[in-house]
Design a protein around this nucleic acid. Structure first.
Lengths: 131, 131
DNA sequence: TCTACATTAAACCAATCGGTTATTTAACCG
DNA sequence: CGGTTAAATAACCGATTGGTTTAATGTAGA
């Protein structure tokens, strides 16, 4: 899925996988034990683990017939960093102020319409595109 | 997709949508302007906006024929909160420092300090572990 | 009122997702 | 060796995703 950040967020976008990470935060464990709380088959859990592994959120060892999983929170750092850039937007006062200032400086309701010299990289020839 | 948190992470798991949010952080704007940097059709962008809207990350107004979008970072707060629970797992130094300071301030409890969830704290307990 | 414009809706498509069952691989143990 | 256990793979399935093209909707303005 292209970039690391997208992989990370996609991996987090599933409650089962988040629960798996939460369990792994308490310590390394086996796949069967990870699967225990869920009402799904082992292969399903195995697939979730593969998603987490591809995202770099877990690493796996080898111990006899067990494949222990351990948390690797490294990618979460970047995810947190990305989200953190928006922190000021959920501080309510700052948010309201922000909207106010935005309304002052970007009056969308104003007269101008952006004059049809628009670039639009590879706009396909839609039927009536008479510019 | 069930829960709010999953919706939020899923919405963030796409570079186009993250770019849209980044643009909206600079102020409310129209769909056409949002679509401008991307090499995809307008309906594609419209769909991305719908995903963001379903996740509660944007809100939309009505202003003549324009449907201005504005950022609503509220859901990001929960996302950040979730990830933050793992912060100590990507800050090993801080973690080690914490343990050190803990030991310094409780010098008499040398035997079993709680240090609740160290990575290697609970070793596997497989049932057939007859080592 | 007619036309242009901004946006969404509809219908379609290939790829991916999240799950299943059945099979296979790999290691242990008696 | 044969049997059991842990886990992964294969093959399949329906739903969703991310994109397309075409068509419809709603508003502004000459």
């Amino acid at each position: 899925m292209q970039d690391q950040l997208s992989n990370t967020f996609a991996a987090l976008a599933d409650p089962t996988r988040r629960a798996i990470l939460a369990r792994l935060a308490m310590g390394e464990t086996s796949v069967t034990e990870l699967a225990q709380p869920f009402e799904m088959s082992m292969p399903a859990v195995s697939k979730h683990l593969k998603v987490l592994e591809r995202a770099g959120l877990i690493a796996r060892g080898r111990e006899a017939q067990w494949r222990p999983c351990r948390l690797d929170a490294g990618p979460l750092k970047d995810a947190a960093g990305w989200i953190d850039a928006y922190r000021r937007f959920w501080a309510p006062y700052v948010d309201a102020l922000e909207r106010h200032l935005d309304r002052m400086s970007h009056p969308l309701s104003a007269k101008r319409k952006p004059s049809s010299t628009r670039r639009s990289a590879n706009r396909r020839n839609h039927k009536g595109e008479t510019k």
